[in-house]
Design a protein around this nucleic acid. Sequence first.
RNA 1: CGGAGCGUAGCGCAGCCUGGUAGCGCGCCUGGUUUGGGACCAGGAUGUCGGAGGUUCGAAUCCUCUCGCUCCGACCA
Length: 605
Amino acid sequence: MPGLPGLLFRQIQVNFSYFYSLCPIYMIHPRNRNHSMRYSQYLLPTLKESPADAEIISHQLMTRTGMIRKVAAGIYSYMPFGLRSIRKVEQIVRDEMNRAGAIECLMPMANPAELWKESGRWEKYGKELLRFKDRKETEFCMGPTHEEVVTDIVRNTVNSYRQLPLNLYQIQTKFRDEIRPRFGLMRGREFIMKDAYSFDLEETDADTSYEKMYQAYRRIFERCGLKFSAVEADSGAIGGAFSHEFMVLAESGEDAIVSCGGCEYAANVEKAEVRVSAEAAAAPAQALAKVETPNQKSIEEVANFLKVPADKLVKTLIVQTDSDELVAVLLRGDRELNEIKLLNFLGCDWVVMAEEAEVVKATGAPTGFAGPVGLKLRIIADNEVRQMSDFVIGANEKDVHFTGANLERDFKVETFADLRQAVAGDPCPRCDGRLESWRGVEVGHVFKLGTKYSEAMGATVLDDQGHSRELIMGCYGIGIGRTVAASIEQNHDDNGIIWPMPIAPFQVLVVMLNPNDDAVRGAAESLYAELLELGVEVLLDDRDERPGAKFKDADLIGIPLRVTVGARGLKQEQVELKARAGDEIEMLALTEAAVRLRARVDAAL
RNA sequence: CGGAGCGUAGCGCAGCCUGGUAGCGCGCCUGGUUUGGGACCAGGAUGUCGGAGGUUCGAAUCCUCUCGCUCCGACCA
């Protein structure tokens, strides 16, 4: 039996290494200090040319810096340099999730079909869900998200309201078999995602859980150094609950956003409301008249042919719903249908534009000539149509349109609704301002789910009255890789990446200008060692390359602080500091360089 | 899924139309020179031309099939 001091000592040792095992990577474990962060031995395969398939900046730069390597369409290996940045973002996410009271877990990538059949999504999810069978022919899918699994966990382990609130999160690789993967990590099929799921009994508590996540997300993206905006998003067919997307501003963004210059309102165009103006339609001035429009099918063609502006046309879209009903949707000629709004209005999961044959059957004319007059279909119209008069519509007859069409007099509409896509210049739905539009990358999404899954899968707990009640859920996602990519979209110049310190793969790059010069080598090596000792994440460029090549690589990989150790500076016992983000060059005394750099790093974190 | 295109050395590409056993640039290796913004000289290695089948004396090249990848579209009647 060991004596007390021995036990204590052992205990301390155990705790010590345990402590380090929990450390974020930027706190270097003493055992790891000797690990080579020498460029000559590190794997950083930079490319002068960017690969042919990289379209957007972040994809080009991530490939050129050797952060990622493509393995298959939408599937990438994270190379050492890229992984460091990924891990930084993960760590920031972890910090803030933990701070907000969420608990980390890790669910499997392979999900049994059984659970997905229970929620109904095995049928609903479509081809994005990658399905496969094991050797026993049991069906599985790669998890694209984990509501089913987490709900299963909770229903089996949480029985009482006393265990609530509960928020479980994981940082996991997801798989979605995207129709069109593109833009590198921006839209991959396999990607790392943080997903969290909250469980509450009361609506107000669920709202609190949502609010906590919303605030945590703000902190996360602020800490990552991103310019972002939280916008109202569509909550889909799941219900009227609320949802926000966190959008990073970037021209290459796949989402269109509108926001108001005058107030806080910001929304995805999928969601953005269009305010109905009070303006009434002018009284009909023209009679309904047939005009020949040979082969003039599109709005543009008809408008040009009849020499009227597109906003004097009304287009009639024939859509087919998931219950096989055909519906006619009327929109002002120059407007676009917002399909999400239509889905929500009809309560459908999907609609498609009707096939040519269906259109012919329903309207008696080929596509391009559909109109509401005499049409035996359900007719719904965008609010704006109500304010139009003497407009042009299809006549349900090949090569014929009507001019001078008017509501009520010539045809009736079952319902008016907000169905069109918002555009820049529209009045703000909240104030007197006008909407502006811009593009963003969706890096995070917070979503109040309600009881969809708890109901389908029987996730209930007993409340303080002993009654069994369904849990109210929320789900909260962050695309980790996409966040890194979005950061590069925002932080780069012609020469390469300009990392914000908090997510930079390394904090300091020491450039040893001429490794064959003993004085230079010695000074750079000892500065490197000192920085390691101070816990600075440092990469030492000790390659026997010409200075030009080293500087070019330094700019490309974008480490925030670059220290050049060269014969020129050493004559004055100095090294040269340059921030990647600026132009100024600062000379540091060799003796205090390490400490100064540590301070610069801390100031930027 | 519809349309278009591309698969030739690690990367970027030429060669294909008009069949005759494969080339350029970058990178890589060796030696030398060079060392503050992608150096130079000399020498060198590297390809089942995505795969299968066919036509042919002969196929990277022509034909068929197949696999992979990329782009555009998938509401604007």
